[in-house]
Design a binder for these strands. Structure first.
Length: 491
RNA sequence: CGGGGCGUAGCGCAGCCCGGUUAGCGCACCUGGUUUGGGACCAGGGGGUCGCAGGUUCGAAUCCUGCCGCCCCGACCA
């Protein structure tokens, strides 16, 4: 393991890339824009999945699986939807390879051309709605509350590990309802689940809001989102929940008979979060020493590093360490005792700091003698010598404190980098200076939004749901505005 | 798709401008020994189609032509 990380203040983007590799989260694959998620990175994702999955189940959803391939014709059924995804779809045209006659290797067999080309799903609305058509006849079949954990492919020009990759992992929920009101409630409910997950598990504060017309999901009536702020002052969309209205029901002819026997189109929602959350998690808390993970998502919550010269010393440390391990495991804390004699303690300290392990226990001969251990926390790097008997309680308290502390720190940072402005001059000044979220009045037109984007590279991240009504004038056009919206430069 | 950069050992790089011993350094790896409270040290050792294909030359990692791949920065997007 190479040492050292570029400083955030010097080259944020390099810092991020190096961190992803050095913390053993992911690496680039042979295929451009794709990534290999390494076991350590993947186990963080699994913890995210587990927490989210439980929240989905607790609100009545079930998992299912729909195919990777989408018949090309499906994609053309909803006009906005095609428009949105056509440019980035991978297409399967053949189904067989053969050996080249000149022995140069394997080639696509030209005789094995598919009748209808298949699209690798960029998202599954079309497959799912074509299926829902068969599942739904009456109001008794509703609601349908389905989620799937899957991979999707969007052929992006420019990719970054976790933040934007050609193939990524996500969950996509697709629900069908009898009424508009119920579908809207579902959309908001799932947004709230995402926000709760981000704040309670990732320790990452988010703004809940609605996307503008130009930023919303192709095919949706409304797109709700959670927006987070990264340490470089750029915003990151961390999750979306869409109210689809009857758009897909109409495109795929999904109707149900209501209690009066009248045929109506079904109301839909879809919602998703992806491995992009990994990027958000990394950028929300980590420092120049490496990853900082919230205890609730850390694959290893506590690491025990022995400091020893002799085999006898190691054995007496092992006894203490095993005791801790046992007790902590009983409390549901994941513990690793790193008794390798191939690396020095100092090396291990640096290694686990890079990997963001929240709590480290060091035990050496001195501790054995005194009946103590040294406990270090990753977030502040503070160390404390604690008596052996108090250690378990100390650690469980400490983990809660770390979870709280990194959230509070991220919250303070966001508060610091959220600025109210009242003029376009001020707006540009803040963007070019400290960055972050800029709250400003906007006249509600796509033209103004587009102009501002062209001139400043800032986009409207969302219209915050808790925005209070207040009369003002648009910072760009001077036209009247009813509420402020949140601008930022974004990932 | 535009601009820039890179491709030499598992990783990170030097060598290339100005062609010429056996292609070198750090990390990692292997062996032995000493070490271990913040990325240990000494000695020895193994590992290379120099991205690919042509060309120039007595001789190419180095010069020329073409190609491929990846990364970074922009435009576009989750």
């Amino acid at each position: 393991m190479a040492k050292g990380l570029p400083k955030r203040s010097e080259d944020y983007s390099k810092w991020y890339n190096e961190l992803v590799k050095k913390a053993d989260l992911a690496e680039h694959s042979a295929v451009k824009g794709c990534m290999i998620i390494k076991p350590y990175g993947y186990s963080i994702w699994e913890k995210m999945q587990a927490a989210l999955d439980k929240m989905f189940k607790d609100t009545g959803h079930s998992n299912a699986y729909f195919p990777l391939f989408v018949p090309k014709s499906y994609l053309s059924k909803e006009a906005d939807h095609v428009e949105g995804f056509a440019k980035e779809c991978a297409v399967v045209t053949h189904y067989r390879l053969k050996n080249a006659e000149d022995g140069s290797g394997v080639i696509v067999d030209p005789d094995a051309k598919l009748e209808e080309e298949l699209i690798v799903r960029p998202t599954s609305e079309t497959v799912i709605w074509s299926t829902y058509k068969n599942w739904i006849q009456s109001y008794r079949d509703l609601p349908i509350l389905v989620n799937q954990w899957a991979n999707v492919v969007r052929w992006e020009m420019r990719t970054r590990l976790f933040l934007r990759t050609a193939e990524f992992l996500w969950q996509e929920g697709h629900t069908a309802h009898a009424t508009r009101r119920e579908a809207e409630a579902e959309t908001v409910q799932m947004l709230n689940i995402y926000a709760t997950f981000a704040e309670e598990f990732m320790a990452m504060p988010v703004v809940k809001g609605v996307k503008t017309e130009s930023e919303k999901f192709p095919g949706a009536i409304d797109t709700y989102c959670i927006e987070a702020l990264m340490q470089d002052g750029k915003a990151l969309q961390a999750g979306t929940s869409h109210f689809l209205g009857q758009n897909f029901a109409k495109a795929f002819d999904v109707k149900f008979a209501d209690k009066e026997g009248k045929l109506e189109h079904v109301w839909g929602t879809s919602w998703g979060v992806s491995t992009r959350l990994m990027g958000a998690l990394i950028m929300a808390h980590s420092d120049d020493e490496g990853l900082v993970l919230p205890p609730k998502l850390a694959p290893i919550q506590v690491v025990i590093v022995p400091i020893f010269k002799t085999e006898e010393q190691l054995e007496s440390i092992r006894e203490v360490a095993d005791g801790f391990k046992h007790e902590l495991l009983k409390l549901g804390v994941s513990v690793k005792f790193d008794d390798r004699d191939t690396n020095s303690p100092g090396w291990k300290f640096a290694e686990y700091e890079m990997k963001g392990v929240p709590v480290r226990i060091a035990i050496g001969p001195r501790d054995i003698e005194n009946g103590t251990v040294e406990i270090a926390r990753r977030d502040t790097k503070e160390k404390k010598v604690v008596s052996k008997d108090e250690a378990v309680q100390y650690i469980t308290d400490l983990m809660e404190d770390i979870q709280r502390n990194i959230y509070a720190k991220a919250m303070d940072f966001r508060a610091e980098l959220t600025t109210d402005v009242s003029s376009y001059e001020e707006f540009k000044e803040v963007l070019d200076g400290k960055g972050g979220f800029v709250s400003a009045h906007w006249d509600g037109t796509a033209e103004t939004e587009e102009k501002i984007k062209e001139e400043t590279k800032a986009t409207i991240r969302c219209i915050p749901m808790d925005a209070e009504e207040e009369d003002g004038v648009c910072i760009y056009s001077g036209k009247p505005s009813k509420r402020k919206v949140l601008f930022a430069r974004a990932y």
